[in-house]
């Protein structure tokens, strides 16, 4: 009960700050009158959205689809890689090292290459989203899988547990908090990757819509897309966090009154 009140209070605060900012923005535009191509007022952005809400929602859905596809693939591939890396010195020396090296390349720069390889359909966009999200999945999963009390492993081995049982019953559950930390970063990166993909090979999606609107000097439209993008990112993040809560009712972060999310 206390916890619910607390989180209600926190979301109230967020709402107040948000509304305050919008009002300030509206007032500033009303007073300073910048050209709409530089900064439109919130009310103008809202009116722009209402002209073609179907179009914007369709673009949002396209972006959402690509992001989720890239994210899910990154999670599947990333977790498999992490398990392999933790269990094999060979994979650790090769795949892990390569991955770290690859991560220091600005991956966004590889986007045009993906278009050359895969064309201009949804595939290169998913691939870029996957590539950007993959790293944080692997790094945090490897970290989590490794950070097990050695005595816990000793105990399991003393009971003659198989290494699969150790993975399933100890390492994986123990790694979940760390894995979810990685997933929360990964979901945002997947969205970034999707937008980059839509920039370089787009025929739909919010990234493509932004480019089109920019070409027409239609700043209010750009802002509509940006706001939708922000909403999308926030919603996706909280969906992952919600899944974390479902998966980790036992974790320290969930035990006490303070809620991390509004």
């Amino acid at each position: 009960m206390m916890r619910r009140l607390q989180s209600l209070y926190e979301s109230g605060m967020v709402l107040i700050v948000l509304i305050g900012t919008l009002l300030l923005w509206e007032a500033a535009v009303f007073v300073l009158r910048p050209p709409p191509i530089i900064l439109p007022a919130p009310s103008q952005i809202w009116r722009e959205f209402l002209i073609t809400p179907g179009y914007f929602l369709q673009q949002s859905f396209s972006t959402l689809y690509t992001t989720v596809a890239g994210f899910v693939l990154a999670v599947a591939i990333g977790l498999a890689l992490a398990v392999g890396i933790v269990h094999s010195k060979f994979l650790e020396r090769t795949v892990y090292t390569l991955l770290v090296a690859l991560n220091s390349v600005p991956k966004v720069a590889l986007a045009p290459l993906f278009v050359l390889w895969m064309g201009t359909g949804i595939e290169p966009k998913i691939a870029i989203a996957l590539m950007l999200a993959l790293f944080s999945v692997v790094i945090d999963a490897v970290l989590g899988l490794r950070s097990v009390d050695p005595d816990m492993i000793n105990l399991a081995r003393a009971s003659r547990a198989s290494s699969f049982a150790i993975l399933r019953k100890i390492r994986l559950p123990n790694a979940l908090p760390s894995i979810f930390a990685g997933l929360k970063v990964a979901i945002s990166f997947a969205l970034v990757g999707t937008i980059v993909g839509e920039f370089v090979a787009g025929s739909e999606g919010l990234g493509f819509a932004i480019l089109t609107a920019q070409g027409q000097f239609d700043t209010p439209r750009v802002f509509v897309c940006l706001i939708l993008l922000g909403l999308l990112g926030t919603i996706l993040f909280y969906i992952v966090e919600f899944m974390e809560r479902l998966a980790l009712p036992w974790h320290v972060s969930q035990r006490t009154g303070h809620a991390a999310a509004p």
């Binding site: 816990m152 105990l155 100890i170 559950p173 036992w250």
Partner: peptide, 9 residues
Amino acid sequence: FQRDVLLDW
């Protein structure tokens, strides 16, 4: 062991 290594979950 000295640490009980009970599993939190």
